[in-house]
Every structure is written in C-alpha cells, then in structure tokens.
Design a protein around this nucleic acid. Structure first.
Length: 108
DNA sequence: GTAATGACCCGTC
DNA sequence: GGACGGGCCATTA
C-alpha cells in the first residue's frame, strides 16, 4: 500500500491553481514508467477525499474522465476553473502555463 | 494459482 | 502535423 501512499502524498502536494500529469506524479513518486498505477490509485480515491485528484491530468493536458464518475465530468473542470485554470475550447489545459513543476529542473 | 483489465506514456510509422 | 502499437505494474475476477 506504500505505493499508493507515495502517489497520494505527491498529489496532495500539488499547489492550488496548478496541475500535473500522471507521468510527473509517477516520477515524483519514484516510479517512472508506472503511470498506470497512478491512475489506478486515483481511481480508488473518493471524490470527497482530501486529495486534489482533479489537479491530475493526462499527458495531453486533458482531463482524464473516469467511467465511475461519468456524468460528473463537468465537476472537475469546474473545480479547476475555480482555481484559475483556463480551458481551451477543446477542453484542454495549457500545460505550458499550468503544469506544476515541483522540484524538477525546468531548463528554461 | 492464472488471466484480463485499466483516470496512462513513449517511440515509431 | 496526427495516428497506431507495445509496454510498464498493480488490482480485480
């Protein structure tokens, strides 16, 4: 279970108004290449949990909808918009601007 | 115990 | 520039 705990810790550290990708979370959790597990971990997370699961998006910068939450997809978008994140007309997020870089080098 | 699935990512055509 | 396939690991049936 420590595996999931790592992921939760990382996701919990995402500042407000920023988003990150599954791959980044996996890397921060020291599990590069296991992005799938990250998605699985968030899958188990409950909507009313203290984990900002809505700040985690896929590498394309789009929101990952869960079949479990179909119908509530707009909720995630609303939460992100409330944090100041803008969406394109395609429903995508500009990762270049809102991607959380944590402590990784940005090489400008 | 085996087999299949999944909120994904990356390299290649 | 977009589309396709393979692969990573843990959980569930």
């Amino acid at each position: 279970m420590n595996t999931y705990t790592r992921i939760y810790e990382v996701v919990r550290q995402i500042p407000r108004g920023k988003v990150t990708t599954y791959g980044r979370v996996a890397e921060l959790a020291e599990m590069y290449g296991k992005a799938r597990v990250v998605g699985y971990a968030l899958y188990k997370v409950d909507t009313n949990s203290d984990i900002p699961w809505h700040r985690v998006v896929n590498a394309k910068g789009e929101i990952s909808y869960s079949p479990l939450r179909q119908g509530m997809d707009y909720v995630q978008r609303n939460l992100l918009e409330d944090e100041g994140i803008e969406f394109t007309r395609e429903g995508k997020i500009n990762l270049r601007q809102y991607e959380w870089i944590s402590e990784l080098p940005t090489l400008s």
